[in-house]
Computed example of a mutant assay.
Amino acid sequence: MTAHLITGASSGIGAAVVGRLAGRGDELWLLARDAGRARELEARFPGTRTLVGDLATPEKLSWSLSHQTLPDRLDSLLHIAGVVDLGDIGELTPKAWNAQLAANLVAPAELTRLLLPQLRLARGHVVFVNSGAGLRANAQWGAYAASKHGLKALADALRLEERAHGVRVTSVYPGRTATPMQAKVHRQEGKEYEPAQWMAPESVATTVLTALDLPRDAEITDLSVRPGP
C-alpha cells in the first residue's frame, strides 16, 4: 500500500489532499502539533495514523519522532503546513521572522532529514506546497516570501542531492486559495474575504496528486497554479 506523511492536514489544501488520498485507500500518516490535535485528526479521518511534532519548534522534532513509531517506508512526504504574518520590513520583529522561517523552512528541512531513510527505501517523493510568494515578493510579504524563497532553494538542492537515491522532489506554487490562511491574510490586509474569488483547495490538491501519480520515467519539478479567469 502506498504510504504518505502529510503536514497541514487539519484544514485547507492539506485536508483536501488527505481526503483525496484516503478516498483511494492509501496509507496516511498525519503530523499534528500536539496530542489533542492528533485525536481530532484521527476522528475526522478514520483509518489514518498520526504523529506528534510541532513545526514551530523544529529543533525538537528529532526528539519527538524518536519516541514514536514511524512508518517503515514512505512513498511521499507532503509539506503543506505553513504560517503567515504580514508586515512592513520596518515593523516586523525578530519573533515574526523566526516564527515564519521556523515553520515554513527549517521544519520542512528537518522533517525531510529525519524521514529520508524511509523515502530512499521507497524511492519516494517529496512535495513542497510553496506559494506564489516563493517566486516573487510583494510589499508587506517580506518575511513570508523569504521563508518561501528559501523553501524553493531547499527543494532544488534536495532534488539534486537525492537523485541518486531515486527520490523525486516537486515544488507547487499556488496562487491565492480559499483557505483559513487566506481569510487571515485578508484580515491583515483590511480587505473583505470572499472565498468564491479564489481557487478551491481541491484544485490545488489535484496538482499535488498529478505530481505524485506521474509515471516514474518523469518528474514535475516546479508547478504554478493560479485562480482561473
Rank of each mutant, 00 (worst) to 15 (best):
A3R: 12
A9K: 04
S11G: 06
S11F: 11
S11D: 14
G12M: 04
G14T: 08
V18M: 06
V18Y: 03
G19L: 07
R20T: 10
R20S: 12
A22Q: 14
G25A: 07
D26F: 05
E27F: 02
W29Y: 13
R33I: 04
D34T: 06
R39C: 06
E40H: 12
E42S: 10
A43T: 14
F45G: 00
G47M: 11
T50D: 04
L51A: 06
D54H: 02
T57F: 07
P58S: 10
S62F: 04
W63E: 15
L65V: 02
S66C: 09
Q68N: 10
Q68I: 10
D72I: 09
D75K: 03
L77A: 05
H79S: 09
I80V: 15
A81C: 09
I89P: 02
G90Q: 13
G90E: 14
E91V: 11
E91F: 11
K95N: 05
K95E: 13
K95P: 00
A96S: 13
N98G: 02
Q100W: 03
A103T: 14
E110N: 08
P117A: 07
Q118V: 07
L119S: 06
R120G: 04
F128M: 14
S131I: 07
G132D: 11
G134I: 03
Q140I: 02
W141P: 00
G142M: 01
G142S: 15
A143M: 10
Y144A: 01
A146W: 07
S147A: 15
H149T: 08
G150N: 10
K152P: 00
D156S: 12
D156C: 05
A157N: 12
R159P: 02
E162L: 14
R168K: 14
V169A: 05
V172Q: 01
Y173K: 04
Y173L: 04
P174C: 14
P174I: 11
G175W: 01
R176H: 03
T177I: 11
M181H: 02
A183C: 03
H186F: 07
E189F: 04
E189R: 11
G190N: 07
E194H: 03
P195Y: 00
P195A: 04
P195S: 08
Q197S: 14
Q197N: 13
A200T: 12
P201I: 06
E202S: 09
E202D: 15
T207G: 04
V208K: 01
L209V: 02
T210P: 03
L212G: 00
L214E: 06
L214C: 13
P215A: 10
D217E: 14
A218I: 10
A218R: 15
I220Q: 03
I220P: 00
T221W: 09
S224P: 07
R226M: 12
P229L: 12
